[in-house]
Design a protein around this nucleic acid. Sequence first.
DNA 1: TATTGTTATACTCTATAACTATA
DNA 2: TATAGTTATAGAGTATAACAATA
Lengths: 178, 178
Amino acid sequence: MREPDPRARQARSERAIGVGRLQDQIGYALRRAQLSVFADIIAVLAEFDLSPAKFSVLSVIRENPGASSSDVGRVLEIRKANFAPLLDALEQRDLVVRRASEEDRRTFALYLTPKGRALLARATRAQCRHEARLVARIGESGRVQLLELLDRLTQVSAATVGADGRPEEDTKRPARKA
Amino acid sequence: MREPDPRARQARSERAIGVGRLQDQIGYALRRAQLSVFADIIAVLAEFDLSPAKFSVLSVIRENPGASSSDVGRVLEIRKANFAPLLDALEQRDLVVRRASEEDRRTFALYLTPKGRALLARATRAQCRHEARLVARIGESGRVQLLELLDRLTQVSAATVGADGRPEEDTKRPARKA
DNA sequence: TATTGTTATACTCTATAACTATA
DNA sequence: TATAGTTATAGAGTATAACAATA
């Protein structure tokens, strides 16, 4: 995919255009794949009235019962100001409880309720079926390769960490303009 | 690759928690990689006052001079209602021109201006340096493998197409609730 | 002084609906 | 009737700032 041929373009219907070199760029391919995969994830989790973010929060609480809001927010890179209303919604649905901590009275310890555990179990099974559909497309070896490659691309870039190697502020990078 | 010193975390009374099984899920890994890669892309393109979306629009117009708004919007999956103000911004900066079409007086033919071509050339060179940084992490063979795997994951899912196989509405999937 | 958690708020993306002018 | 393009607007998601309680 190099130079577009003007005659070929004329020969085509004028609707048939391509993205050109964009197609071979990692960022563009990553974004398209992520949107495509998430379209399915979102549809799957919507059956349980869960967004991907809520599903990930429930999963992390299940794996780390008693963790605080800041712990869970940090590992998922959700800012505290956005985490509070998300947690409110989960607590109002009786999926999660905030219990006062005795050691540090500023924090709450987070736990799944029985209802939360049951819902998450069902959602996780559906999510696994979704994952199986993806593996059917790329194979088990493709999955292993992909996770390895993605992990090597996922790094804290130089712009997002301070001199001590810790993320600045609230775990995220500074905003940039358009 | 995240926290260099576990004791530093304890000093801040942070609990060492992990994301559990989430780590091995394709969707989660995809999203984290995409955000990480885009953080760099956004920073690179911000030097030229371009968002990834604007960069992609300029690129597609360069590869398809004379294409219409709906053509470009369709191939990039940008809805027409969102495409109009985006084009306005590019035209106000004298990077793109809308020329009236004689064949179909409803449409405009889009072209880069000389200024647009020059800016896009510089932005593309910076974007290539960004791409080279990514390839340095995964190798050229890793890049080829990755693009192949991502392409196989990028599909029009069953939920997004009508019975005739064509995307519904405005090229995108129906909205789902939280 | 620093951190946890909350609220208020703003900005960006992306979505739908309604409209026009053409076809 | 259907499509190209515009405008208005609403909803997510995500950002900052300021604050109270606690460390």
